[in-house]
């Protein structure tokens, strides 16, 4: 969880050219400056980075913690599959 959060923070900070520290778990994506397209871009990058595939019906994320939870859940599912 903490690791995923750090990675997500880094990705968004890099994209928006803002300080990672300014991104909190409860931050709203729109408030940070991510619109729906930016979010798709982050998801695209995350798919590569984590080796996961995010289904279309699960991309409705609102806060950073939504994003982190989504990635974590898919990472766990992936781990189960590879066991």
């Amino acid at each position: 969880m903490e690791d995923t959060f750090s990675i997500v923070k880094e990705m968004i900070a890099k994209k928006l050219e803002i300080e990672p520290a300014s991104i909190q778990l409860n931050s709203n994506l729109t408030d940070i400056g991510l619109d729906s397209l930016d979010t798709f871009d982050i998801i695209f990058e995350a798919e590569d980075k984590f080796g996961i595939k995010i289904p279309n019906d699960q991309v409705n994320v609102v806060t950073i913690s939504d994003v982190v939870n989504l990635f974590d859940r898919l990472l766990q599912e992936k781990a189960k599959v590879s066991l």
Binding site: L37, F40, D41, I43, F44, E47
Partner: peptide
């Protein structure tokens, strides 16, 4: 297997 999200735009 997939393209960058902004390709169309």
């Amino acid at each position: 297997t997939r393209l960058k999200p902004f390709t169309v735009l």
